Simulated scan of single mutants.
Amino acid sequence: MGSACAVTSTANAINASFDPALPHDFARDIAPVAGLARIPLVLVVNNDLPVTSVADFIAYAKANPGKMSIASSGIGTSLHLSGELFKSLAGVQFTHVPHRGSAPGLTDVMSGQIHGMFDNVTSSFELVRAGKLRALGVTTRERSEILPDVPSIADTLAGYETSSFYGVGAPHDTPREIVDLLNREIAAALSDAEIKSRIAGLGAVPLHGNANAFGCMLTAETERWRKVVELSGIKKE
């Protein structure tokens, strides 16, 4: 058998189409083991921006074409591409400003140097709760339990949906009995009350299901992000 298991994430699903020069095929070379958690993203803006909803944000962007700026944690990330999908569906334009991670981007939004950002709720919900940022909408169809008063962007922008995820994969030649054993052990851990509480406290949603279910999810996520990458027209340099 090959090397040990590794965490898989949204980055793998995105890079499968964003970076065609990768030396491996994500879908072919991995044996899906189990999902860990799905993380909604949230559109946050500077408190001085005169918008209080997704509809306001779209209207403001259309009234100020090309003048809006949106931060991200880097080109080709789920944060970046969530903004690109929003631009396409809403028919608006804003300048993408990549940062070296989420925290610097959030800092620039809070200071007013950048207007807004699509960020994982796990790293931004405390800033929203503290009133340092204004949350306009979450990127999942369902509201986030940690930000229950923030509506889904899809309520305003039909068809919009993104999220981040984490899971576990093994080398493609891993015996099925090993994959199933690992899946059961991970499922048992995710069922532990303390772990469930910890995941929920971060704003993430535990993923459940067998290895086949996780494999189907990986296929769906890879296809979802392939479409967004194509829509954005962005290519790996």
Rank of each mutant, 00 (worst) to 15 (best):
Leu133Lys: 03
Asn120Val: 08
Gly105Arg: 06
Val121Arg: 08
Phe125Val: 05
Ser111Thr: 14
Leu127Ile: 00
Leu136Asp: 01
Thr107Gly: 08
Thr139Glu: 09
Leu133Cys: 05
Ser123Val: 14
Ile114Glu: 12
Asp108Ile: 00
Ser123Tyr: 08
Thr140Ser: 10
Val109Ala: 02
Leu133Ile: 06
His115Asn: 13
Arg134Met: 00
Thr139Met: 10
Asp108Phe: 06
Asn120His: 03
Gln113Asp: 14
Gly105Phe: 05
Glu126Ser: 12
Lys132His: 11
His115Met: 15
Gly112Ser: 11
Ala135Val: 11
Asn120Arg: 03
Gly131Asn: 08
Ser111Asn: 12
Val138Tyr: 13
Thr122Asn: 09
Ala130Tyr: 04
Met117Lys: 00
Gln113Ala: 14
Ser124Asn: 08
Arg141Phe: 14
Leu136Thr: 02
Ala135Pro: 11
Ala130Ile: 06
Gly112Trp: 09
Gly105Ala: 06
Ala135Ile: 10
Leu133Trp: 02
Gly131Arg: 10
Thr140His: 05
Leu127Ala: 12
Leu106Cys: 01
Thr122Lys: 07
Gly112Arg: 11
Asp108Ala: 15
Val128Ala: 04
Glu126Thr: 14
Gly131Tyr: 08
Glu142His: 07
Leu106Trp: 01
Val138Met: 13
Glu142Phe: 05
Glu142Gln: 13
Thr107Lys: 14
Gly131Asp: 11
Leu127Lys: 12
Leu106Gly: 00
Gly131Trp: 10
Gly131Ile: 10
Gly137Met: 09
Arg134His: 07
Gly105Thr: 06
Asp119Phe: 01
Gly105Glu: 04
Phe125Lys: 04
Asp119Tyr: 03
Met110Arg: 13
Gly112Asp: 11
Gln113Met: 10
Thr107Cys: 01
Ser123Leu: 13
Ser123Asp: 10
Ser111Trp: 06
Met110Ser: 07
Thr107Met: 10
Ser111Lys: 12
Ser111Leu: 15
Arg129His: 08
Asp108Gln: 11
Arg129Met: 04
Gly137Val: 11
Phe118Trp: 15
Phe118Ser: 12
Gly112His: 10
Val109Cys: 01
Thr140Asn: 03
Lys132Val: 01
Ser111Gly: 07
Val138Asn: 13
Met110Cys: 01
Asp119Glu: 15
Asn120Tyr: 12
Gly105Ser: 06
His115Pro: 02
Gly131His: 09
Ser111Met: 14
Gly131Lys: 11
Ala130Asp: 15
Arg134Ile: 00
Leu127Trp: 07
Met117Val: 00
Thr139Ala: 14
Asp119Val: 15
His115Trp: 08
Arg129Gln: 13
Leu133Pro: 06
Ser123Cys: 03
Gln113Gly: 12
Ser123Glu: 15
Asp108Pro: 00
Ser124Glu: 07
Gly112Phe: 09
Glu142Asn: 09
Val121Leu: 09
Arg134Gly: 00
Gly137Arg: 12
Thr139Asp: 10
Val121Pro: 09
Val128Asp: 03
Arg129Glu: 11
His115Asp: 15
Ser123Ala: 14
Thr122His: 04
Ser124Pro: 06
His115Lys: 07
Gly116Trp: 04
Leu127Ser: 08
Gln113Pro: 01
Val128Ser: 05
Asn120Thr: 12
Ser124Trp: 04
Val121Trp: 08
Asp108Gly: 00
Ser124Phe: 06
Asn120Ser: 13
Lys132Thr: 01
Asp108Ser: 12
His115Leu: 07
Gln113Asn: 15
Leu127Gly: 02
Phe118Val: 13
Ile114Arg: 11
Ser124Gln: 07
Leu133Arg: 03
